[in-house]
């Protein structure tokens, strides 16, 4: 996390101006609106998170295998390749699994995965690019989810939970109304039944809970500052000893 400028003294006055790049956000939203879309692509969603001070992996959106290799070499192997298209929301289920290729260790693997995505898109007749992204070490951290939405009754609210079965099966999630103060965000994390897993369990490294706390607050601030956003779903946020990184993100605009 580049910016921890938010209130840490227990007050809820939020220093959102310094952590949110409103112009960048406005231009991302404008582009989607111009294309008549309310759902942002993963790449757009991540750029939006960047502008809100949330850490995201290095990445590039490319059109063909050659560009993909150039991008991968700039980022450094291993990388992942994902379909990037407004027409595809469930990437891993798309085109029999061609939509997401993990752990690409060299140029050939990158070229093949990119070509597969392009071919599948052509076969379906959709516009699609390819997102080449730094591969995260999933074993090196704990997957969490951070979300937020603009609700009719409470306005912007946030959600945090641990990834996988904890959030979905056990409904082990915690909500806070935004803006969320530092102690409130920390209390939300600590209230999770699965919270002890974040501090290191069976040899897993302890996660940077401060960074997760700041991610929750940043999602809350983003919603407060940007009424045009209806919903933000960052799943997973990988919490490692080095920070909290948004590995996947979906932003939906007000319809």
């Amino acid at each position: 996390m580049s910016d921890r400028s938010g209130a840490v003294d227990g007050s809820t006055d939020l220093d959102t101006a310094t952590r949110i790049d409103g112009d960048a956000i406005a231009s991302i939203i404008e582009r989607a609106r111009a294309a008549d879309r309310t759902t942002l692509t993963e790449a757009e969603s991540k750029s939006l998170l960047d502008a809100a001070g949330i850490e995201t992996p290095d990445r590039a959106v490319v059109g063909d295998p050659e560009e993909a290799i150039t991008a991968a070499e700039a980022i450094g192997y291993p990388v992942v390749a994902k379909v990037s298209s407004a027409a595809v929301t469930h990437k891993s289920e798309w085109a029999d699994g061609a939509g997401v290729a993990l752990d690409l260790a060299d140029a050939d693997a990158v070229a093949d995965a990119t070509a597969a995505i392009r071919e599948a898109a052509a076969a379906e007749g959709i516009d699609a690019e390819v997102l080449i992204e730094d591969a995260a070490d999933l074993e090196g951290g704990t997957e969490t989810i951070v979300g937020g939405m603009n609700t009719p009754s409470f306005g912007p609210v946030t959600l945090v939970g641990l990834g996988g079965v904890f959030a979905e099966v056990y409904e082990d999630t915690a909500h806070r109304i935004a803006p969320v103060s530092e102690p409130e965000a920390r209390a939300a994390v600590e209230s999770l039944t699965a919270a002890p897993l974040l501090s290191g369990y069976r040899g897993r490294p302890p996660g940077d809970v401060d960074a997760l706390v700041e991610t929750i607050r940043a999602v809350g601030d983003l919603l407060v500052e940007t009424p045009a956003i209806d919903e933000i779903d960052v799943n997973p946020v990988l919490v490692s000893p080095d920070g909290a990184v948004a590995l996947d993100a979906l932003v939906v605009l007000e319809g």
């Binding site: 979300g147 939405m149 009754s153 409904e171 999630t173 915690a174 909500h175 779903d233 939906v252």
Partner: peptide, 11 residues
């Protein structure tokens, strides 16, 4: 999507 994990009682 996110909200399906909860009702608003918790809110």
């Amino acid at each position: 999507h996110t909200g399906a994990l909860t009702g608003d009682h918790e809110l």
